[in-house]
Simulated scan of single mutants.
Amino acid sequence: MESKPPLPPFTLETAKTKVQMAEDAWNTRNPEKVSLAYTVDSVWRNRSEFFTGRDKIREFLVRKWHKELDYRLKKELWSFTDDRISVKFEYEWHDDSGQWYRSYGNEQWEFAENGLMKRREASINDLPILESERKFRWDRQS
């Protein structure tokens, strides 16, 4: 059986670890790698999109990172219970015209016993910014 430690029930330390692992994975911008953190029947809401399943997650991420170029994300633990974690986040990206954005949001996560995420709900707002207003800089090889 697949497993993705740390496993629920979460402590403050393991919840923070889970959030950092998610941030690190999403910053790879690798849809295959990121999708493996979710159950095969994971239920998602991302903005106004609703879908179910790891294959749909992978398809979504491919579309996302095809549009949101040079994506860089920071997540912060907001709260947690035994099998749920809530995070706030912000990320920066630009479109193919060079317009930069900072996106702000909140996610609610619910985990299966094996540590894979079985439910994710994300609310996100985008703010156009100037490139000079960027907060997150990184090596483009990351």
Rank of each mutant, 00 (worst) to 15 (best):
L7F: 01
Y38G: 05
L73V: 10
T17E: 15
L127H: 10
S142C: 02
Y91R: 03
F50R: 12
T14S: 15
R84I: 00
F50S: 12
D83A: 12
W44S: 14
S48T: 14
E107P: 03
P5N: 12
M21A: 11
K88F: 06
E92M: 01
F60G: 12
R84G: 00
Y91D: 12
Y38H: 10
T81G: 13
N30H: 02
E121K: 06
E113N: 11
A122I: 03
S103G: 15
S79N: 08
D24F: 00
W44F: 15
L77V: 02
M1T: 09
S3R: 07
H66F: 06
K16D: 09
W78Q: 11
S48E: 13
P9Y: 07
T52Y: 00
W138M: 08
E23H: 08
Q20R: 09
P9R: 05
R137D: 11
N106M: 14
L73F: 10
V87E: 15
A25G: 02
K118G: 12
K64P: 03
G53I: 03
W26M: 11
R72S: 13
E133S: 13
R58F: 07
A112M: 08
E107L: 08
S3I: 10
S123P: 00
M1R: 04
M117P: 00
W100V: 10
K118S: 03
V19T: 06
F111N: 13
K33W: 03
K74D: 05
D96W: 06
Q108P: 01
K56I: 01
F136R: 05
E68Y: 09
R137G: 12
L127W: 09
D70M: 11
R45S: 13
R140I: 09
K74P: 02
A22I: 03
D24E: 14
K67P: 07
R134C: 00
F111P: 08
F111E: 12
T11I: 11
H66W: 08
W78R: 09
W93N: 00
F10W: 07
P8Q: 07
M21P: 00
L69G: 12
N125I: 11
N114L: 01
A122R: 03
D96A: 13
V87H: 02
K88C: 08
D126G: 06
W78C: 06
D96G: 13
F51N: 04
F50Q: 13
W93Y: 15
I124N: 04
F10T: 11
S42C: 15
G53Y: 01
K4Y: 14
K74E: 14
R119Y: 07
F80S: 00
R119E: 10
A22N: 07
Q141P: 03
F111K: 08
K135W: 09
T11D: 13
V43R: 06
H66C: 09
V40L: 14
Y91P: 01
P31W: 08
F136A: 06
G105M: 08
L130K: 13
E121A: 07
S97R: 13
K56T: 06
